[in-house]
Amino acid sequence: MRYITPRKAAMGLGSAHSGTADHWFLTVSSCALVLLVPAFMLVIGNAIGLSHPELVAYFGRPYPALITALFIVVGMAHFIRGTRIMIDDYFQHTARKVAIIVSVVFSWAVIAAAVFALAKMTLVTVAI
């Protein structure tokens, strides 16, 4: 016999106390990435081999800039949750905490660097 009602069981959101939020985030972001992956590969494929001024002008255009920014922001947010699952599997105690912190900080640094570079290239093109 169960001593708690289904409502009470759902209220605690499981042993993680955050329910299936990470799993749902990975599901939503993976659907977005299915569309972003081919688009991003086309954008990068067209960019490799351009001269420096051509490259800056290329990423100043809306489509290459938006696809690249979306891929890196959504991709690294997906990466944070993905590495978290790996870290939870292989690391314990302090090592686990350190690994999670490194993963999150690193991912946001990558996002910031990419967004900064894209923003600067967009503004340079507008200024011309």
């Binding site: 800056v56 660097a113 570079a117």
Partner: peptide, 18 residues
């Protein structure tokens, strides 16, 4: 996890461009 190498190379390339 290995995709981190490719994304690092490309983001370094983008930051270098500016």
């Amino acid at each position: 996890h290995a995709l981190v190498a490719g994304i690092l190379l490309l983001v370094w390339w983008l930051v270098a461009a500016v």
